[in-house]
Design a binder for these strands. Structure first.
Lengths: 209, 209
DNA sequence: GTCTATATAATGATAGAC
DNA sequence: GTCTATCATTATATAGAC
């Protein structure tokens, strides 16, 4: 488990990347100008381009870094990988920056982020399959889609975390916030519909179909 | 029910706004230059600024329009408003543009969109409260948060709709796609956890807390 | 209301010294 | 590796004619 590294110990290249990792999700790509990134990293604008070739190159480096780091975290995981309950809190343990960046990258055209998304879905399907066999999770007529949608919902929650925090006070990228959210998520995925509603909704869908 | 209006019947101002409504979510704010918007609307760049003062003014006009339109759709609704099952399909009936724009706006700093989000949560809480009394929905220790999170998950799904479509083939902003998604969402919100897992997860949370 | 032409500002990127 | 100075491009916004 790598602990929070001091900025002073990092190479200049890493400091620049970390500055971008912070700024892109916070300000968006265009408002995070090379000058602003350079200032945050404590270097000159020219050096940013020197290290990454172009601003787009910097962005790709950030994408690759975050995606790679997520894969490493998955491999470190003793349990089921990205889908096991402790994964999110561990990645938050390293840094909320990682999760926030991924959430942001998923809302932009990022091939790296999209590939990671696909991997997460594929892995989640496997884990779910196994869990079904073990009698932990209910089966489905369309397990692939259900899993993909369920995972998208969780990641979507991360994408909208600012709104969630504003309304509920829960900071999903924070360990304390995640602890508050856990039982609520558990409640939701345990089912919030009573049998009566299920029947009438099922009929509505049949009528509409 | 207002049906799809022909572009030719609209005022120039409305045509410009519609062009932006399309472009902002598709290309992002910065790549949607005034020139591109003007071209799509079939007018000169100067006229865009003449009508909306600035590009930022155009963006605010779009936000206001979408948010207002959503409120109108809610008022038209005979049932529980934005949270009733038919609402989404009806708003898609008018135009997928509306939903796509809202999803995008929620990922940018939009006061209008944030306010709408808050309203949707407040309304959902009310509807859920009523549904609990009617025995349709299960109660909660923290109903506000649970409802906010559940709504965020649904909206988050809209935000990540491109990924959902890539992986499952389901286009959530399309009537046919929504019909495919409905039973899956029903399945999810009915609960996908078996009692065995619930117990062990509950213990895990207790241990972590 | 609508267009064309232009001013102005900011940004990504380059060149060259150290 | 790092900085300063500068270029070239592009975008928003304005001015004024029609």
């Amino acid at each position: 488990m790598r602990s929070a590294t001091k900025q002073d110990d990092l190479t200049t290249r890493a400091r620049i990347r970390n500055a971008a990792l912070d700024l892109f999700p916070e300000q968006g790509f265009n408002r995070s100008t090379v000058r602003v990134i350079a200032e945050k990293a404590g270097v000159s604008p020219g050096l940013v381009l020197h290290h990454f070739g172009s601003k787009e190159g910097l962005r790709e480096a950030c994408d690759r870094y975050v995606v790679t780091r997520f894969r490493e975290l998955k491999d470190d995981s003793l349990q089921g990988g990205m889908f096991d309950p402790g994964f999110m809190s561990r990645s938050i343990g390293e840094s909320r920056v990682l999760m926030r960046y991924l959430a942001w990258a998923l809302t932009t055209d990022s091939p790296e982020a999209s590939t990671l998304f696909d991997e997460m879905v594929a892995e989640a399907v496997q884990v779910t399959q196994r869990s079904i066999e073990l009698g932990y999770i209910k089966g489905s007529a369309d397990l692939e889609s259900r899993t993909a949608i369920q995972l998208s919902m969780q990641l979507g929650l991360a994408v909208l975390h600012e709104h969630v925090q504003r309304v509920t006070g829960i900071d999903l990228f924070d360990e304390a916030g995640l602890r508050r959210a856990m039982p609520i998520l558990l409640e939701i995925f345990s089912g919030t519909f009573e049998p009566d509603l299920l029947q009438s909704l099922g009929e509505t869908i049949d009528r509409t179909a």
